[in-house]
Amino acid sequence: MKTESALEKILAGGHLAVTSECGPPRGALPEKIKEKAGMLKGYVDAINVTDNQTAVVRMCSLAACILIRQMGLNPVLQMVTRDRNRLAMQSDILGAYSHGIDTMLCLSGDHPYFGDHPMAANVYDLDSIQLVQMVKGMRDEGKFQGGDEILNPPKMFIGAAANPFADPFELRVARLAKKVKAGVDFIQTQCVYNLERFTKWMDGVRDRGLHEQVYILAGITPMKSAGMAKYMKNRVPGMDVPDEVVKRMSGVSKDRQAEEGIKIAVETIEQLKEVEGVRGFHIMAIEWEQKVPEIVERAGLLPRP
């Protein structure tokens, strides 16, 4: 074991892991984050906390992670390289670890263009792969990126994202290999709707033996409505929602679409359980956290270890 991370323990123990996420509120509302995290208690192993997701200002991931940690739950600190340079990121990592946060997800983040401050400077001192390298260096060598020694180095279980659905597809396995080379411990993928493309990607992952070097958690996002399915299909960059899925959502009456979305999510999990190399699920129920327990239960993922 590289860390004290509960997520690492579960994955190393050979269990299918279940993670979920909380988007922090757009205001100084600590109760909001506690309420969201509270819904997930007992149903997931760790809770990702997004970092100014879609480049929109929210309560910082670190503060929200601390609140969740104080509830006795296991937060995953998401960190994007868009908003902070390497000094700020490393000091945040020290702060997080000082509060018992031992798992993080390294991302580049959406471009500010999408958010509520499109006029902001985008930092990108590092990219996500270099962030993985930096966090690993802090953990394994006990050194800051600049080379100085760290007193009591933070032992982070290091995650990153993978999007098997972005282009060019032929590069997507190689890109994962690069993240593995950088030292990533676990991967949470983009939401899976296109199982065919996902399994094709996993074939490539297994061909190179990458599934033995990194834990892969497949991303699941239940859709609330046919409108959401269409929006995700057409408007969200790097999202692959096949026509059949949109049709299936549109094929039921409005009041039953949410249930259909949950059904699709549960079926997807069932099918992904059969894919060798999938070591767990990352359920991102966007502003729909209350549905996570039901999905986890119906997908046969209870009780949690």
Partner: peptide, 15 residues
């Protein structure tokens, strides 16, 4: 757009 030295990011679509 993100000056990534190890890209592409997950937002790359159809080139």
């Amino acid at each position: 757009s993100k000056r990534l030295l190890n890209g592409p990011c997950g937002g790359s679509t159809d080139g």
